[in-house]
Amino acid sequence: MDPRFTLQFIAKKDGQLLREALQEWRISKRAVTAIKFDGGLLTVNGVEHNVRYILQLGDCVEVTFPPEKKSDGLAVEHGDLTIVYEDEAILIVEKPAHQNTIPSREHPTGSIANLVCGHFQQQGLASTAHIVTRLDHDTSGLLCIAKHAYIHHLTGLAQRSREISRKYEAIVHGHIEHDSQSIIAPIGRKKTSIIEREVRADGQYAQTDVTVLKRFFLNSEPMTYIRLQLHTGRTHQIRVHMAYLGHPLVGDDLYGGSRHFIDRQALHCVSLEIAHPLTNEPLQFTSMLPDDMLRLVKLSCL
């Protein structure tokens, strides 16, 4: 069985160059070059052709992408993945807290990406892990992985046009005054740190919507249980915006939160909505609040 990723398209125009059709199918020039030189294949009605071939209405075009190679620093590992959804194009998994999405210098192994590579190897896929929606090491919840570079390209286009929706739930210090609000404040790297971000005038546009679910006290400490929707995907966006608002996440000691109640930032991705990159079918996935965060809410008092 050919492990290469293959897609079929039907020509919708008479007399169109194959090259032009590939562009309409959002196959980039770089991908076409890789197909030509790195082991891919273009066929029309089962016969190999180059991009100058003139299509006829109804022709069946098959695009076989070259096999992918993972980076040398991404080790193949086998372990437990909590898979919420999987098909030929995308993989939705639930990431626990205290696990990296991708390897880092501090955590070179055991990441979601390492395990996904092992999962793909078991399936016989000539692919690597393409992370679409990344979560911080201590953030839990849903994330999306593309099973091929072309799918990653399509989901990247969807992200840039804000067609992928993510909702989070968090517990923050203090009682937030307004039941709902939108934080629009640019985020950039803090000059004194390679890790921290901050709201700064020369940062990138960032928008986070905040809705209060519950205000409560825990051991006389005021806290607010909130739902958040991201309109942009800046690094540490929710953590930075909530600290900027004066309500850092409980457990987020990098941005002013206390770890007295929980040993990580109390942040969980509860919802992920995406149009399927190949069929455009709307997909929605949800995730329950994890036990460590649920415990704080259940222990609360008004």
Rank of each mutant, 00 (worst) to 15 (best):
A11T: 14
P67W: 02
I164R: 09
K167H: 10
Q99V: 02
V297P: 07
R295A: 05
F5T: 03
I274R: 02
V212K: 05
E94F: 03
L18R: 04
T139A: 10
A89R: 04
D87G: 07
M223S: 09
E196H: 12
L296V: 14
T235N: 13
P290Q: 15
V240L: 04
D253H: 06
P248I: 06
R4D: 00
I145W: 03
L55F: 00
R134V: 13
H130V: 10
K29L: 13
I274T: 00
G251V: 07
A266T: 09
K298L: 07
I226Q: 01
D138W: 01
P290F: 15
C301S: 12
K214I: 12
L254K: 12
L42P: 00
T208N: 03
K147G: 03
I183V: 06
V47S: 02
Q204P: 02
L154F: 01
R166S: 01
S127W: 01
Y53K: 06
E24V: 10
L115T: 03
V212L: 03
G233V: 12
V210Q: 00
D80K: 09
Q8F: 04
T279C: 01
I54F: 11
R134N: 07
I10Y: 11
L230V: 12
I131L: 12
L299C: 05
K147S: 06
D2R: 02
S165W: 13
V250C: 08
L254I: 09
L272P: 08
V297I: 15
R162Y: 02
L74V: 05
G141T: 07
P222D: 09
P282T: 14
E281W: 07
L41Y: 00
I131F: 14
V51R: 05
M223Q: 10
I83C: 11
R200T: 13
L135Y: 08
H241Q: 14
R52M: 05
S28C: 05
R234N: 13
E68K: 03
R295K: 12
L283G: 03
R264N: 11
D252E: 03
Q181T: 10
P282G: 13
C60M: 02
M293A: 11
Q237A: 05
F5N: 00
T235M: 13
D263M: 08
I83S: 14
L228I: 08
V76G: 07
Q16V: 06
S28L: 12
